[in-house]
C-alpha cells in the first residue's frame, strides 16, 4: 500500500491496512539485523531526534539502533539535557528542534496527549514512543508482529492482558490494536487497576487470573510498579504475586502452546516467576528483537517511505 500517514500518534488512528503494512514492512526489515554488516543506506542523510522527556532506556535504545541500521543520524535529547528543565515549554523546545530540520521527532513524554500537541505545532513527522497512560503504539505493533510471527495470524486469537491496566499505555494500545485486528482481548487484574469504562474499548474484564488465561493463545503480563503500592492499589507484592503472578503452576491451566509476553522490564518473582519467564512459550526476548525491526519500519514509512519517494 501507499503510505500516507505523517505521524504515528496512537493505535486508534491506525487502520487495519496500515497496521498490516507496518508489520509487513517490519517483517521485511528484520533480516537486516541478522547480517554481519547491520546497516542499509535507506535513510542516509536523514536526521531522527529522539526526544525523551521521560526516562527510558529500552525504548530509546531500540529507536536509536533502528535509526542507525537505516543509516539515519539519531540524536538523543533527554529531559535532563534539554532546556525543558530551564523552564522552556514543550512547544518551544519542539519548535527549536524543528528549526534544526530533523526528518522525524520520536517523543516519549509523561503527559498523555503531548505527541498530539507537538504534531499540531510543528511540521516534522512525530512518532509517539509512549505518552503518559495514553498510548505506546510501537510497543503494541511489535507485540502484534511477534504474535503474528508465531501464530501466523491475529484474527480470531484470544489474548489475555494481566496487571495494572489502569496505568498502562501498553495495555491500552494493545487492546485497541489486537481488537482492531480481530483478536479477542480479555483483561485481568484487581478492580483497583481497572480503569472506568475500559470495556468500551472492546475488551472483557475479569478479576480472576485463572479464568482470564483459560484457553487463551497469548498471555501478556504487565509490569507492576512498586510505588503503586503506596497509592493503595494492592496490599503487598506478596499478595499481588499470589493472586496475579504468572507461575509454571498456573501455566498448566493454559493452552500448551500459549505465548508468554511482557513489555519489560521484568519484576521477576512479582508479576512473573523466573521459570515462567524463561519457559518454552516465552517470547519476551523476541519482542525486544522485533522491537528494533518494527521501529525501523516506522522510521522508514514516516521519514523515507514510498510516500516521500513519490514526492520526487
Amino acid at each position: 500500500m501507499m503510505w500516507n500517514r505523517k505521524h504515528i500518534l496512537d493505535m486508534d488512528s491506525l487502520s487495519v491496512a496500515e497496521i498490516t503494512a507496518i508489520i509487513d514492512t517490519a517483517d521485511g526489515l528484520k533480516e537486516i539485523s541478522e547480517r554481519a554488516i547491520k546497516k542499509v543506506p535507506t535513510l542516509r542523510g536523514k536526521t531522527v531526534v529522539l526526544f525523551f522527556h521521560e526516562p527510558s532506556t529500552r525504548t530509546r535504545v531500540s529507536f536509536d539502533i533502528a535509526a542507525k541500521r537505516l543509516s539515519a543520524d539519531a540524536i538523543s535529547i533527554s529531559a535532563s539535557s534539554s532546556s525543558l528543565v530551564k523552564g522552556e515549554t514543550l512547544i518551544d523546545t519542539a519548535r527549536n528542534l524543528e528549526a534544526m530540520k530533523p526528518d522525524v521527532i520520536v517523543i516519549r513524554h509523561s503527559s498523555a496527549g503531548a505527541p498530539l500537541l507537538l504534531s499540531q505545532k510543528v511540521s516534522t513527522p512525530i512518532i509517539n514512543a509512549g505518552d503518559g497512560m495514553h498510548a505506546h503504539p510501537s510497543q503494541a505493533l511489535l507485540d502484534m508482529m511477534t504474535v503474528r510471527e508465531v501464530k501466523g495470524r491475529l484474527d480470531g486469537l484470544r489474548v489475555a492482558i494481566v496487571g495494572d491496566i489502569s496505568h498502562s499505555r501498553v495495555a491500552r494500545s494493545n487492546i485497541i490494536g489486537f481488537t482492531r485486528m480481530g483478536a479477542d482481548v480479555r483483561l485481568a487484574g484487581p478492580p483497583t487497576m481497572m480503569p472506568a469504562g475500559i470495556e468500551a474499548l472492546g475488551a472483557s474484564v475479569t478479576y480472576d487470573f485463572d479464568e482470564a488465561i483459560d484457553g487463551v493463545d497469548v498471555i501478556m503480563m504487565l509490569r507492576i510498579q512498586k510505588e503503586r503500592q503506596q497509592r493503595f492499589l494492592f496490599p503487598t507484592e506478596r499478595e499481588y504475586s499470589r493472586r496475579y503472578g504468572l507461575t509454571l503452576e498456573r501455566l498448566k491451566k493454559a493452552k500448551p502452546d500459549v505465548m508468554i509476553m511482557h513489555p519489560g522490564p521484568l519484576n521477576r518473582g512479582v508479576e512473573i516467576s523466573p521459570d515462567a519467564a524463561d519457559s518454552a512459550g516465552s517470547v519476551i526476548l523476541n519482542q525486544v528483537t522485533n522491537g528494533v525491526a518494527l521501529r525501523m519500519a516506522l522510521l522508514y514509512l514516516v521519514a523515507g517511505g514510498p510516500r516521500n519517494a513519490d514526492d520526487h
Binding site: 486508534d12 496527549g113 503518559g132 491500552r172 480503569p195 472506568a196 469504562g197 475500559i198 474499548l201
Partner: peptide, 13 residues
C-alpha cells in the same frame, strides 16, 4: 472526569 473518555485518553480521572 473519571470515565471512559479519561480511560481512552490515558488521563487520570
Amino acid at each position: 472526569n473519571e470515565g471512559f473518555t479519561a480511560t481512552r485518553l490515558g488521563l487520570a480521572g
